[in-house]
Simulated scan of single mutants.
Amino acid sequence: MAPSFDTSTHTVCVMDASGHLGFSLVQRLLQRGYTVHASVQKYGEENLFTGISSDPDKLKVFRSDPFDYHSIIDALRGCSGLFYTFEPPFDQPNYDEYMADVEVRAAHNVLEACAQTETMDKVVFTSSATAVVWREDRKTMELDLDERHWSDVNFCRKFKLWHGVSKTMAEKSAWALAMDRGVNMVSINAGLMMAHDLSIKHPYLRGAAEMYEDGVFVTVDLAFLVDAHICVYEDVSSYGRYLCFNHIINTHEDAVQLARKLTPGASSSLPQRLVRGRFWSF
């Protein structure tokens, strides 16, 4: 029988802890008995965590700029694990042709800091399904897309799929550095996360009509995604990349339901236009 995983002996860092995924990870990790370093980017975000831990010694909040190497080192000190999810900086919130450089630099800094943290055992790196699904030959491939595939950055640039560009380049940069520095890393390539404030402006949705037609328009519930992160951290045999989703938008009814969620209060004809790709297409 495999030994049980003693969460009480593990100190882990969540970065950025102020986003939907990061905050939910902090909550679940505390519930499971971990000691958590919650790393946030902006002043004032520390207040998000007031009262969420019954044991104040189990939670420490750090302000860490992903472009400030030393602040990352401070947050990681003493940690055996890192849950890393990129949140765009407040002064550049939109995905555009420049975001890839920003996200790559952040990933590089974080992985380098992990390599210099002697106590670090495993990094769970949050990536996206958009780093998998976008390829010129996707309609003629003999095999189904899976975790072995990568999006074609040139294809993404051609059609201004900036989310795919950023996630592909950042994940590849993280993997290159992890392998070079000997960091034990696992990536989770998540579908569109169904947060309560999800809107049609989300950069993942660029090209959604094509994903729908190709049968690769996948979504994931927040709780499911949180559990997946913790599962791959606690499983000593986990490795490589994991596509993570619990629903596929592949029927007309699914598409209409999602369109209505994205455009509450819109006219009844809007979901039909969305499904046909008027707003989601290339």
Rank of each mutant, 00 (worst) to 15 (best):
N109F: 02
N109M: 03
V132I: 13
L161H: 12
A106Y: 00
D91K: 11
T85P: 08
V110I: 12
L82P: 04
S127F: 06
G164P: 01
R148Y: 12
V104I: 15
T126E: 13
R148Q: 11
C156T: 00
A131K: 05
S151F: 02
E136H: 12
Y98N: 14
T85G: 14
R138G: 12
D121S: 12
N154A: 11
G78N: 10
M120F: 07
L76W: 00
R135Y: 04
K172N: 10
K167P: 01
N154H: 10
T140W: 14
G78R: 04
R148H: 13
T119F: 02
D144W: 13
D152W: 01
V124D: 04
D91V: 09
Y84L: 09
D137R: 09
R105M: 08
E118M: 11
K160H: 09
P93D: 01
R157W: 09
E147M: 07
A174F: 03
E87L: 13
F86H: 11
K139L: 15
R157A: 11
F155I: 07
L145V: 06
K122Q: 11
M99L: 13
V153T: 04
M141T: 10
V123H: 05
S166I: 01
E136C: 11
A113T: 09
D152E: 08
E142L: 10
M120I: 10
